[in-house]
Amino acid sequence: MAVRKALAGAVAVVASLALATPALAAGPRTHHDATRQALRANVEAGAPGVTATVTEGRTTWSTAEGVGDLRRGTPRSTADHYRVGSITKTFVATVLLQLEAEGRISLDDKVDTWLPGVVRGNGHDGRRITVRQLLNHTSGIFNVTEDKEFQRAYFLKDGFFAHRYDTVDPRRLVEIAMAHRPDFAPGTSWHYSNTNYVLAGMIVERVTGRPYGEEIRRRIIAPLHLRATSVPGTRTTLPRPASRAYGKLAETTTGPSYDVTELNPSMAWAAGEMISDSADLNRFYTALLTGRLLPPRQLAEMKDTRPVPDAAGERYGLGLIERELSCGVRVWGHDGGIHGSISSAVTTADGRHALALNLNGDWAGDPEAVIEAEFCGPGHK
């Protein structure tokens, strides 16, 4: 899928540039057999391990396949914390839409209104770009993680091991993007850009006077009791339990893999730094789609989508991906990729059926096949 490829290239690994024991929380159910088979296929395709949780009403089904620690041979756990990458974007967009509902900001405000002079240079002009265009990736602003020097410093082996613990200021991320020409004039096309959400996080901080992560904690994490979810800032480790995360740190998907579990996620910041687990992600997207986090008007704005180029059946709203699956089922959510971690979380619009999954390797696997199996497999057609 186009967005997943962008995530893998933008935040996970340059290789993709072109992202406890298995358990059943509820008893075995026939219509999950296809899902389990698709998860195993991801491991057979080369992913170290995968963990997934499904919620249907009050029923939860969880399973894990493969290895969580290649050195020790320990299995993946259904309780694993993991880096969720660009799933962070849905949290950031939700906070901005809450601020709009409170009358503190308009999505039609120009970026320059809140960040004067920040988006300027080489054809970029924050006086012509709206907050809405940041959130739906129609701003044309260059994607910072497509910068070749940035890739060498943070995604390739030598640079990663030299800089994995560095703190990167969000303004520096924007400066790197401003050194390039825009991809297109604002509002005339669509291109996935992590810079958009770095700027969105900066706007949250300007509007509220507080760190964007604190706003996410106060407005989303605490009210929903998301105990496994955090905005780590510069913390380099994962909370326990957690599996190790592995990446190729190369421009190919062959060759050795490296343990990339520890890193300073400020290199992704508001575009992709958050940590969660599968159960929390299901709770978040279910609450979001059923109106617990946003008033009807703001939720409608978030779900106002446009087609994603080269991705049949996929549309992008405000930090939210809409997918029409092969069987006609429509799901909403987001994908996420960061070093050693590829994630997907989706739910139906009524919140009755949700799935979240994570692979602890960033070079192999097919989360889309798992989504198709769960929502379109036997028992759900």
Rank of each mutant, 00 (worst) to 15 (best):
R217Y: 05
I203F: 03
M274Q: 04
S243Y: 07
S243C: 12
T286M: 02
G247W: 06
L224P: 06
T234A: 15
S243G: 15
Y285P: 07
A279M: 03
A222W: 03
F284G: 04
T208P: 11
L281V: 10
A271E: 08
S257E: 14
G213H: 08
R235Y: 04
A245I: 01
W269D: 15
N264L: 11
T208I: 06
R210A: 15
S278M: 14
V260M: 08
P256V: 06
R210Y: 09
T254H: 12
V198S: 03
Y258G: 02
R283W: 00
T237A: 12
S230L: 14
S257P: 00
I221C: 09
P239E: 09
S276W: 07
T290V: 13
R235K: 14
L238E: 09
A268S: 14
V198C: 02
P265N: 07
S266V: 05
I221K: 05
T208M: 06
V204D: 04
T254D: 14
I220V: 15
N196C: 10
K248S: 12
T253Y: 08
K248D: 03
R244Q: 14
A279T: 13
T208Q: 05
S243T: 13
T253S: 15
P295M: 04
V260G: 02
D277Q: 05
Y258K: 06
V198L: 01
I216P: 01
